[in-house]
Design a protein around this nucleic acid. Structure first.
Length: 820
RNA sequence: GGGGCAGUGGCGGAAUGGCAGACGCAACGGACUUAAAAUCCGUCGGUAGUAGUACCGUGUGGGUUCGACUCCCACCUGCCCUACCA
């Protein structure tokens, strides 16, 4: 290579800010409605403004940005917006610790993150930014709540809820994690509390949420959501107690009804008190108290020994009239099904263990085929398999495959039960007893009840002057004046709801606010909606599979039924990126000291290098540990791109025609591969393909190709392929090689299929499937010619050792396999 | 206990019925340099051999196939989710 000082060095810090400013000044990435252009809504999950943009944020956003840029060059009108999920606990905790107002803390962090996001060189259209903690945003979060409330999709009820004693607020079920049931934010074990809470009726949509047929989402997310919703088919059956009450149970095995020898209620079940006899009252009360405390201490694992207490009460088995005892036990959950079960010890392992421990009767009512006749006294475990119904009154003898249907028909005919579907999915608990969230827009009037705030009075703004100290009640409740108001109906004295909404409510519709963040007639401008929605590609972490991604689907469907949104799904295609681990292969965290700061990397290498490395170093959907020497490879590559394109070659070699044909072939083959890799999110092979092509171009340059027509073509195609990955250096080289600004307005090039075609192939010759020779042959070789050439090869002859081939397999353009 | 994902050189990965290890990092040898950095050239799965080459090799065991990293079955290991779900 000639003296590198003859041309300017590649200095990203002199290039990147310059272009970022020019693109912003020119509004290059403004996405406006254009009915003549196909639209493309590319969305990445909005970040929480914790203050520092983590390398993980870059990993989520840079490849998504590159793909959005690719789509833009393909001729789509691409919208790639950004915003901030700005409500939430960390701001409030920071306020408590440091005495800063949550709004101030949040807005300061947002300012830092905006700067960091700009330094990435993304094509974000900042005119569409939305911040969920702005009154102009949460006004509409409140508006959605009111629509839901008016249509019975939001309601309040007293319920035992998971409460975090450290954060002093309730948690949604999916925010409680692990065996010890700890808070996802602060890891404190949660406790149970009975509170009046607000809910959204997600369960109304349980069935529809199981349908993924119209969306292209990863199997894994579909599985996670399906398991979370957990649909089970069975029957609901009514048991009458001797006190005349009805206990409804859900069972997936109506065919085992004749084997129900006792019932079990959850300790919190409302009928327990009524059923319990005087003799048992003390034991029952003690057990209930113990069960309640259980939440307080640690919740034990599933395989712990069964405990329970007899209530003294009895129910009647509705199919055989047997009198069966009613127990309470903590293995029955109030939160699933009806909080009561019929126990069939012979065919359910939990019931079996319970029956053995408390010496309750076990009656076999199912005889699986291929098994010795079951004898209850000799059983060591329950037999849950399907089989012929036995000992089951009129249905005795019903074969296994008929049992479910016949049993269901029987109880329906007798009027004691009916076919039923049950879901694990529960209604979404949205109340939070904290300050920094969107206030629930409800006024409680002693005369008129809970009334929505009139829409004209929205937003219900958060007061600024609030005491933070968490007491378990909303800080809004402690404000001297805020909560006192007038009833919108009767005008009498009334009080505001002081709970705020779960931040997942805010993030369930942010993709709609991006459409028109300044619009004040409606949550979004309907014209913008009609043009841009639905989201075409949505990217983000898989950790949101059972939270945000279920909520936002629910929200969209609910809004559809209220006539607010259109279509069944908000996001057509979903892709998840993996995680960037620390160099020690551990999750990055401040306490481990293995955090990689994007700001430092940009200062050292420039944004283009960081972008390229993030796309190159791992499979995007899997992620990988960071490697600080690995990134050296990316900067070397970009330096080499720089010199290969700018530095005049030494010497006066004249390229041979064959070299130019070869160069064009490689360029168009690479273009083909890069195009399909962008479509399939294979970002790592895009970069490796470009590296390979550069190596080939350097060779062609050494052979004298620089400045030829073929070289000019290769240069133009290379830079356009590079543009989505490394937008700054691509723009700089584009200008320096004599093209017109801006490369980012260039169309994505077309593959010249003729140029990409090989004229020779390497024919693989195998003997019994083992590679024995490689032959270079013309691409249009006939089957006969290929087989003959293979058999004539010296190597092959020696491996055949005089034997006659039994069979010769030919795969056109690929290989010959000789079987002896 | 249930479900999911993954296992390929020292490392990240490529190939997804047909040349295993593209591309890059690290390492080693060399050139340039007073020296270093940068850059360039070369080697780089294992065993045997000067070499041509041969044998082995994609977590383990089996199967399907002319041919398996790739498809099927069972298992092992790691990670993630979930959990007395009736």
């Amino acid at each position: 290579m000639s003296d590198p000082t003859s041309i300017p060095m590649y200095k990203p810090d002199q290039i990147e800010p310059k272009w970022q400013k020019k693109w912003a000044d020119d509004g290059l990435y403004h996405a406006d409605i254009d009915p003549n252009q196909p639209k493309f809504y590319a969305l990445t999950m909005l970040p929480y403004p914790s203050g520092d943009l983590h390398i993980g944020h870059w990993y989520a956003m840079c490849p998504s940005d590159a793909r959005a840029r690719f789509k833009r060059m393909q001729g789509y009108n691409v919208m790639f917006p950004m915003g901030f999920d700005a409500f939430g606990l960390p701001a409030e905790n920071a306020a408590i610790q440091r005495g800063i107002h949550p709004r101030k803390w949040t807005m300061r962090n947002i300012e830092v993150m905006r700067r960091q996001l700009r330094s990435m060189g993304t094509m974000i259209d900042w005119r569409r930014e939305a911040v969920s903690a702005d009154p102009s945003y949460y006004r509409w979060t409140q508006w959605f709540f009111i629509q839901f409330y008016k249509h019975n999709l939001a309601y309040q009820k007293e319920a035992p809820v998971d409460f975090c004693p450290h954060d002093n607020t309730t948690l949604a079920r999916e925010q409680v994690q692990g065996e010890d049931r700890h808070c996802e934010r602060c890891k404190t074990p949660v406790i149970k509390k009975n509170l009046v809470q607000w809910f959204f009726r997600t369960t109304n949509y349980a069935e529809e949420l199981l349908d993924f047929s119209t969306i292209d989402w990863p199997e894994q997310v579909q599985t996670l959501q399906t398991n979370w919703i957990n649909r089970s088919e069975g029957a609901s059956v009514i048991f009458k107690t001797e006190t005349g009450d009805e206990i409804e149970v859900f069972t997936t095995r109506p065919d085992t009804l004749w084997g129900a020898t006792f019932m079990v209620l959850a300790p919190e079940h409302p009928l327990v008190k009524k059923i319990t006899t005087i003799n048992q009252a003390d034991a029952v009360a003690a057990y209930q108290a113990q069960a309640e405390r259980m939440g307080d201490i640690q919740r034990e694992t599933a395989d712990r020994e069964k405990t329970g207490v007899f209530t003294g009460g009895y129910a009647i088995n509705p199919v055989n009239g047997e009198r069966i005892p009613i127990w309470i036990a903590d293995y029955v959950m109030m939160s699933y099904g009806t909080g009561a079960i019929m126990a069939v010890p012979a065919h359910d392992q939990r019931d079996f263990e319970f029956a053995r421990k408390f010496d309750l009767p076990i009656v076999v009512v199912i005889q699986p085929p291929d098994e010795e006749p079951l004898v209850s006294a000799e059983m060591e475990a329950a037999v849950p398999a399907a089989g012929e119904m036995v000992n089951s009154g009129p249905l005795t003898g019903t074969p296994g495959e008929e049992a479910f249907r016949q049993a269901t028909a029987y109880i329906e005919e007798k009027g004691v039960g009916k076919y039923a579907v049950n879901y694990r999915l529960r209604d979404w608990l949205i109340s939070r007893q904290r300050y920094w969230g969107a206030p629930i827009p409800i006024i409680h009037c002693p005369e008129c009840g809970a009334l929505p705030v009139p829409e004209a009075d929205l937003p219900v703004e958060l007061p600024d002057d609030v005491e933070w100290l968490p007491t378990g009640e909303s800080p809004l409740k402690l404000h001297p004046t805020w909560r006192f108001t007038r009833c919108p109906q009767c005008g009498g004295e009334a009080e505001r709801e002081t709970d705020t909404m779960d931040t997942f409510v805010c993030s369930s519709w942010y993709h709609l606010r991006y459409l028109s963040p300044d619009y004040d007639q409606y949550p979004f401008d309907p014209q913008e909606y009609d043009y841009w929605m639905p989201v075409d590609t949505y990217t983000g972490g898989i950790e949101h599979a059972t939270m945000h991604l279920i909520y936002t689907r629910f929200f969209h469907k609910a809004c559809r039924d209220l006539g607010i949104t259109k279509g069944d799904e908000p996001m057509l295609q979903l892709r998840n990126q993996g995680m960037v681990l620390g160099e020690d292969h551990e999750k990055m965290s401040k306490s481990r000291g293995n955090v990689i700061s994007p700001d430092d990397l940009v200062a050292e290498y420039g944004a283009d290098t960081v972008r390229a490395y993030l796309m190159f170093f791992a499979r995007w959907e899997l992620g990988a540990p960071w490697n600080s020497s690995g990134i050296e490879g990316s900067i070397r590559w970009l330096r080499k791109v720089w010199f290969t394109f700018l530095e005049p070659p030494e010497g006066e070699r004249l390229a041979k025609e064959a070299d130019l044909v070869k160069l064009r072939r490689k360029v168009h083959q690479t273009l083909q591969a890069v195009t399909s890799d962008f479509e399939s999110f294979s970002f790592n092979t895009i970069v490796s393909g470009l590296m390979e092509l550069l190596n080939e171009m350097a060779q062609a340059k050494a052979a004298g190709a620089f400045g030829t027509e073929a070289w000019k073509e290769a240069e133009g195609l290379y830079l356009r392929m590079l543009a989505p990955v490394c937008p700054h250096i691509a723009e700089e080289l584009w200008t320096r090689t004599g093209h017109d600004y801006s490369i980012h307005n260039q169309p994505w090039p077309e593959v010249d299929q003729e140029a990409a075609k090989e004229d020779q192939i390497t024919l693989i010759v195998q003997v019994n499937g083992k590679l024995r020779d490689r032959l270079t042959v013309p691409v249009n070789i006939s089957e006969e010619e290929a087989k003959t050439a293979a058999l004539l090869s010296e190597n092959i002859q020696s491996h055949l050792a005089g034997k006659t081939p039994k069979k010769v397999i030919y795969v056109p353009g690929r290989l010959v396999n000789i079987v002896v």
